[in-house]
Design a protein around this nucleic acid. Sequence first.
DNA 1: GTCTATATCTTGATAGAC
DNA 2: GTCTATCAAGATATAGAC
Lengths: 209, 209
Amino acid sequence: MATAEVPRTLTDKSARTQERIRAAAARILSERGIATARLGDIAAAAGVQAPAIYYYYASREELIEDVIRLGQIGTEARVTQAIEELDGHTPALEKICVAVEAHLRALHELSDYTTAAVRNVGQMPTEMRERMRADQRRYGRVWKRLFEQARDQGELRAGLDLRTAQLLVIGALNWTPEWWADSRVPLETLVTTACELTRHGLASDPVAP
Amino acid sequence: MATAEVPRTLTDKSARTQERIRAAAARILSERGIATARLGDIAAAAGVQAPAIYYYYASREELIEDVIRLGQIGTEARVTQAIEELDGHTPALEKICVAVEAHLRALHELSDYTTAAVRNVGQMPTEMRERMRADQRRYGRVWKRLFEQARDQGELRAGLDLRTAQLLVIGALNWTPEWWADSRVPLETLVTTACELTRHGLASDPVAP
DNA sequence: GTCTATATCTTGATAGAC
DNA sequence: GTCTATCAAGATATAGAC
């Protein structure tokens, strides 16, 4: 975690203040884009003055990167855990559905961090993006493995371009923060619809209900 | 078109310069986000100095809004035209595929305007977003009609939430600018994969190849 | 029509008091 | 640890020459 060099324990006031700042930054980043997220606004939302942020972070960029990274890692953790909890004999296509559900729930249930990460991926300055690349690739490989398993077990429709299909599915999920909050649709409906679309979209055979 | 109040014909130098400025803004907005798009960079890309922009636009915001609106309208025009060119007896599900293809081609073939529009939808300041809402709703209704037709003709799987399915499909397409440029996949592969996923994802019956 | 020069405003960041 | 006060940088926007 990229904090300033001030040593301190997890139980004191300081840690709570940093958490407030981080959470405020996550909320603002999840609503607006990186560039419109002003330090002053973040500080106000956290109930401190702007300079207080510099006690915890060396720069605005460091704070933003911390938030996005936490969101990224949090999503991966959720999805990975959901998959690992599955029975060893679960069909690969079913695993993909579980990943779809976990990714969606991370985005909309877990916290502002995940939404902040997704909505700002394309807006990161170059160096930040490069530092983040390793995390992104690792998460991408989680999905890649699922798709390869499904293909190897003959569950995918023949001729499907694996990588393209994978990125289209993830894209459908990652775009949901742009519209779901305004919609009157319950999260359950979003989850089941996304699973249905994905399963039938990818499956080689008509899918049992 | 939101230009300044200086009257002039379409054939003179002035119109060409404005077009250069607008195109430069579109390119920069399609690469970075709204907030990192500096007026100076746009001017440089257009081959003028920053103050020259104010001969054509009253403010930075007006220029950006012009670009996004053109992209939005351009996408809708492409999709609408592609659908209207179809034979009257085309199945509704096939129409949706044509819309998917047209939307993707508008994004990746047509111009920077469309990509600029999609990548910056979520970053617009409040008032700009409100002014743009009518255009967005109109485009949404184009898709909505397609989905309703498909449902009414029994081509959609029963129990599918129409609006959610529609927004997931469009989301998958709108997210492609985040990754497709780096990918080594030809546009044709992207188009056919997206059509396949959509068709099988939505269809009530196994789809003929 | 487009430029140079400059005014003005916003915001990230620092200094130092408490 | 957090604040007030302030600086420095960078951006939008304007004035006025050409």
